[in-house]
Simulated assay, not measured.
Amino acid sequence: MLLTLAWGSLFFPGLFALCTWGLRRARPEWTDYDCVMISTRVVSSAQAVLATGSGIAIIRSCNNVVSDRHWLAQEYVWFLIPYMVYDIYAMYLCDWYRIKEQNRRHSLIIFRNFLKV
């Protein structure tokens, strides 16, 4: 349980950082906003593939999906918690870069507006 939580805490931010770093090196003409947006979408796609794969594995191994228990269902929830935390941060980061490119507003104003929406 805690090991799964730790792996999720490393996997999602690590994949985001790796993608952002790779895009900045591969495409130096792209803005920071472009790199962050693409990296966010790559991480979201990876999470979608993992969720779909675990769902298919659970459905195929259970006789009754409603009442049966599968270890992967419980473990994936613990793996998903860091993704949800990462996703909130990634949404804020994308909003911050988008607004930063449009005009030079203060970070606290951007954060307050992010919480409003």
Score class of each variant (00 low, 15 high):
residue 48 A to I: 09
residue 19 C to G: 06
residue 109 I to M: 11
residue 94 C to Y: 03
residue 62 C to Y: 05
residue 62 C to A: 13
residue 83 Y to E: 00
residue 64 N to P: 05
residue 56 I to T: 09
residue 15 L to D: 00
residue 50 L to S: 07
residue 1 M to I: 06
residue 56 I to P: 03
residue 48 A to Q: 09
residue 37 M to S: 12
residue 60 R to W: 12
residue 24 R to M: 14
residue 66 V to H: 06
residue 40 T to K: 11
residue 14 G to P: 10
residue 112 R to K: 15
residue 21 W to V: 07
residue 32 D to S: 08
residue 68 D to H: 00
residue 61 S to G: 05
residue 31 T to N: 05
residue 82 P to C: 09
residue 106 H to R: 09
residue 79 F to D: 00
residue 34 D to P: 01
residue 24 R to V: 04
residue 88 I to P: 01
residue 47 Q to N: 04
residue 83 Y to T: 01
residue 98 R to L: 08
residue 72 L to G: 02
residue 106 H to Q: 11
residue 25 R to V: 13
residue 89 Y to D: 03
residue 86 Y to K: 02
residue 106 H to S: 11
residue 81 I to C: 03
residue 87 D to G: 01
residue 105 R to S: 14
residue 109 I to S: 10
residue 47 Q to F: 15
residue 86 Y to F: 15
residue 45 S to G: 15
residue 37 M to D: 15
residue 85 V to P: 01
residue 104 R to F: 10
residue 65 V to T: 10
residue 5 L to N: 01
residue 66 V to E: 11
residue 5 L to A: 09
residue 24 R to W: 04
residue 22 G to D: 06
residue 92 Y to I: 02
residue 10 L to M: 05
residue 19 C to I: 03
residue 31 T to L: 14
residue 39 S to Y: 03
residue 106 H to G: 04
residue 93 L to R: 14
residue 39 S to C: 10
residue 104 R to D: 15
residue 73 A to N: 08
residue 115 L to M: 13
residue 22 G to F: 11
residue 54 S to N: 08
residue 116 K to E: 08
residue 114 F to P: 00
residue 68 D to Q: 07
residue 106 H to Y: 09
residue 38 I to L: 15
residue 108 L to D: 06
residue 4 T to D: 00
residue 92 Y to E: 00
residue 2 L to M: 08
residue 12 F to L: 02
residue 107 S to H: 15
residue 20 T to A: 14
residue 107 S to D: 14
residue 18 L to Y: 06
residue 95 D to C: 09
residue 1 M to H: 00
residue 47 Q to H: 04
residue 63 N to Y: 08
residue 74 Q to L: 12
residue 105 R to Q: 14
residue 51 A to D: 03
residue 29 E to M: 07
residue 78 W to H: 05
residue 111 F to K: 14
residue 58 I to S: 07
residue 22 G to Q: 05
residue 43 V to Q: 11
residue 88 I to H: 04
residue 70 H to K: 08
residue 10 L to Q: 00
residue 31 T to D: 09
residue 71 W to M: 08
residue 26 A to I: 04
residue 51 A to N: 02
residue 28 P to L: 10
residue 66 V to G: 02
residue 39 S to R: 07
residue 98 R to M: 04
residue 77 V to K: 01
residue 8 G to C: 11
residue 4 T to V: 15
residue 91 M to C: 11
residue 31 T to E: 07
residue 84 M to E: 06
residue 61 S to I: 03
residue 99 I to H: 05
residue 10 L to D: 00
residue 87 D to K: 07
residue 91 M to E: 08
residue 67 S to P: 01
residue 63 N to I: 07
residue 43 V to D: 06
residue 65 V to N: 07
residue 63 N to S: 11
residue 111 F to T: 04
residue 117 V to L: 13
residue 69 R to S: 10
residue 108 L to C: 10
residue 106 H to A: 07
residue 6 A to H: 00
residue 93 L to M: 06
residue 83 Y to R: 00
residue 19 C to N: 00
residue 21 W to M: 10
residue 48 A to S: 09
residue 34 D to Y: 07
residue 110 I to M: 07
residue 44 S to D: 09
residue 69 R to Q: 10
residue 68 D to T: 03
residue 11 F to G: 02
residue 35 C to E: 01
